[in-house]
Nucleic acid binder design. Structure first.
Length: 700
DNA sequence: GTAGGGTTAG
């Protein structure tokens, strides 16, 4: 380094950056980094180094190289040209280049350069391996990682702590948790990074129990832990709903004044939200003095996972007032919220925004879009997005198949399932739920039976209770009530109330009193207080002409104090979501809504509508029953839609319960009288009402 | 000069 202390004076045509230096630092890297601001500076320094022959000093050139890597964004071009001019690059020069490539996320190029280094017989040193292993981790390149591991042993670096820690990380990120653990267990002197690498490895593989278990061991070992440790553990607490440990860490953070760590607080917010403490999470979020896109996304997803989707969208709007730009991850939660709320217009705007910002249509984002359009009853939108996705996986195909099935396009769903098979994408258990419900909607009984039987035989997927439920729906919907009953009785697992309720609904549609009563008995053994079941049974009796029994069931329900869950319907107009509750007259526009509803009911009555008072609430006085039925949330929302949207446009409603018989009947007539297509999403499926009939063929 | 970290889909 002697040459540097006699660093020559500035050239004749001064370079401001250098001439202003009164005393030359001993370390040329400091000099170059401090003085260079852009490519021009670097060029001038480079020229200067040539003049002063310092270009032949590998150490100086490495520092120039490093500056080039850090200062020039998005390109390694200049760094490459410097590297090429180094006479015989040693391992340090290669290290700088490899680090640079990794810094620029060119992991693949880093591995190529490493291979070249070996070809040129340059021995990697202890600093080479951690970097190159990082590239392998990020690429999930297990094969390369293993070869590098062998070289580490050959070079005698296998007890280097840095290298061991990166090896753990590499194996874990490539899914080889046992190998990672083996390396971990073999380390006698474990430092915080050793533990953190293993913890992060378990976390990345979603092995949350092991994260918590290992953290307890870590505490016992006396190593101590840091913020990085807590981030992995908090993530695990969220997934496991382990609020106790999460809170312990939360208190530790508070006590040690660590609230300034953005990543740490974000994982704390995520933990609280996933443990059901969304308001606590929001409190922390509000206290943050800086929030990046991940913090915003975590809070938005927190609301959406807690089923507080309106608040998720409100927060997204708040975010847009800041200068933090949302990313694909943010959009996934936003779209999910739109799909829960049935907010088609808002979601469409989000889709437009995604396109405008040229966001990458990742598999996750694409799948969220496919699911969103399907859940908003716009299946054409789903198909369009799906066809544009550059990459699809089993999630995306499942979303599409399920979406088609729910929207009454069973046959098309099965065609896509066939295509998926041809593309060698392996269906999983969830895919089969979509496929079986497609059979149900399309009335394909034999096809359904075949697919059900093929699950374990051809795909090694054991049917779960949900799949049995789908089979019951297929048989019941087709009117094969006895067979459905037998099917339940012969199930290898204990049928649950959901399965029996499916059969109960079939009995209502096919007027089978005997099995309906039996199904009801089975349900109330485990779930005695579900109002919908009493109503279904009462309707079954009524349709079989047994009005006294129907009334008895209703009274039973009243005696047991089982109240009908309050119905709630949503309609979105101009991106604004309006919420209606049955017989709700406290909302600010209720006067307008009630007069519109009365007008609507008057018009459909003259077209032949007769109220079905069996659907009225129980405590309504006899002569108020008709009014009670006419004030169901769904009718209020439709009436509001009729007066607030242009003639001929589609009205879209989402509701929390199943559609009741009276509303179903009324909506059919409304669609005809007012010449409107009406799409209603109930808690199970879609009803596309058009010209007096419904896509569900009166079975739901 | 080298290692470990936060948000997302069916």
């Amino acid at each position: 380094m002697a040459a540097l202390t006699t660093y020559p004076p500035s050239p004749a045509k001064p370079i401001t950056a250098i001439t202003t230096i009164s005393e030359f630092p001993r370390n040329p890297k400091t000099l170059i980094l401090q003085q260079s601001r852009n490519a021009r500076d670097l060029n001038q320094i480079h020229a200067h180094l040539i003049k002063t022959r310092l270009v032949h000093s590998p150490a100086v050139m490495e520092n120039l190289l490093e500056s080039a890597v850090i200062l020039l964004p998005n390109t390694m071009g200049y760094a490459n040209s410097i590297f090429r001019h180094i006479d015989e690059p040693d391992s340090s020069a290669y290290n700088v280049m490899i680090r640079g490539l990794i810094y620029k996320k060119s992991d693949h190029d880093a591995i190529v350069l490493f291979k070249k280094m070996r070809e040129n017989s340059v021995r990697p040193d202890e600093f080479t391996f951690p970097s190159i292993l990082k590239a392998c981790s990020r690429l999930g390149a297990l094969h390369e990682g293993e070869q590098i591991h062998a070289q580490i042993m050959k070079c005698g670096f296998s007890s280097n702590g840095f290298i061991q820690n990166t090896l753990i990380h590499m194996y874990a990120r490539c899914g080889e948790l046992e190998v990672a653990r083996h390396v971990f267990d073999g380390i006698s002197q474990k430092d915080v990074c050793t533990w953190n690498s293993m913890l992060a490895g378990y976390a990345k593989n979603e092995n949350w129990e092991e994260v918590v278990k290992l953290f307890r061991e870590m505490k016992k070992s006396g190593t101590g832990f840091d913020e990085v440790t807590m981030i992995s553990v908090l993530t695990a607490c969220g997934r496991l709903s382990d609020l106790e440990l999460g809170q312990w860490i939360s208190e530790y953070i508070e006590a040690n004044g660590l609230k300034g760590n953005l990543a740490l607080i974000t994982s704390l917010i995520d933990m609280y939200a996933k443990c059901g403490q969304v308001d606590t999470a929001r409190g922390l979020f509000n206290q943050m003095d800086q929030r990046d896109v991940i913090a915003w996304s975590a809070m938005i997803s927190g609301y959406s996972q807690a089923n507080r989707c309106r608040e998720a969208l409100d927060l997204f709007h708040e975010m847009q007032k800041t200068n933090v730009e949302p990313n694909e991850v943010t959009m996934v939660s936003v779209l999910y919220s739109c799909s829960v709320l049935g907010a088609l217009e808002t979601g469409k705007w989000v889709h437009f925004y995604i396109k405008k910002k040229k966001m990458k249509l990742t598999v996750t984002l694409g799948t969220a879009l496919v699911d969103f359009y399907a859940k908003c009853g716009s299946i054409d939108g789903s198909i369009e997005v799906f066809n544009k996705m550059p990459l699809t996986n089993v999630f995306s195909w499942t979303a599409l198949i399920h979406g088609l099935a729910c929207n009454g396009q069973g046959k098309m769903a099965l065609e896509y399932f066939q295509e998926m098979r041809e593309k060698n994408i392996h269906p999983n258990d969830v895919t089969f739920i979509g496929v079986l419900s497609a059979c149900s909607h399309a009335g394909l009984v034999n096809e359904g039976r075949k697919i059900f039987n093929s699950m374990s035989r051809d795909f090694s997927i054991e049917p779960r209770i949900e799949h049995y439920g789908c089979m019951v729906d297929i048989l019941g919907r087709a009117g094969l009530i006895e067979e459905a009953y037998e099917f339940i009785m012969n199930m290898p697992t204990q049928p649950n109330s959901v399965v029996w309720r499916t059969l109960l609904a079939s009995c209502r549609a096919h007027k089978n009193v005997k099995i309906g009563v039996e199904s009801f008995k089975q349900i109330i053994m485990s779930e005695p207080a579900h109002s919908g079941d009493y109503i279904l049974l009462s309707n079954i009796y009524a349709s079989g002409g047994r009005l006294e029994d129907a009334l008895r069931v209703r009274n039973q329900m009243k005696e047991k104090g089982i109240r009908k869950a309050p119905g709630c319907s949503l309609i979105e107009l101009d991106g604004e979501i309006y919420e209606f509750f049955a017989e709700d007259n406290i909302c600010p526009y209720s006067k307008e809504v009630y007069s519109a509803t009365e007008d609507m009911m008057r018009q459909i009555k003259s077209a032949g509508y007769v109220a079905n008072v069996a659907d009225a609430r129980l405590d309504a006085e006899e002569d108020d029953k008709e009014a009670s039925v006419s004030h169901h949330s769904e009718k209020l929302a439709i009436a509001f839609g009729l007066i607030r949207t242009p003639p001929g446009t589609t009205i879209r409603i989402s509701k929390n319960l199943r559609v009741c018989t009276d509303c179903h009947n009324a909506t059919k007539i409304i669609s005809k009288v007012f010449k409107r297509e009406i799409v209603v999403r109930d808690r199970n499926r879609f009803h596309h009402f058009k010209e007096g009939s419904c896509s569900c063929n009166d079975y739901w």
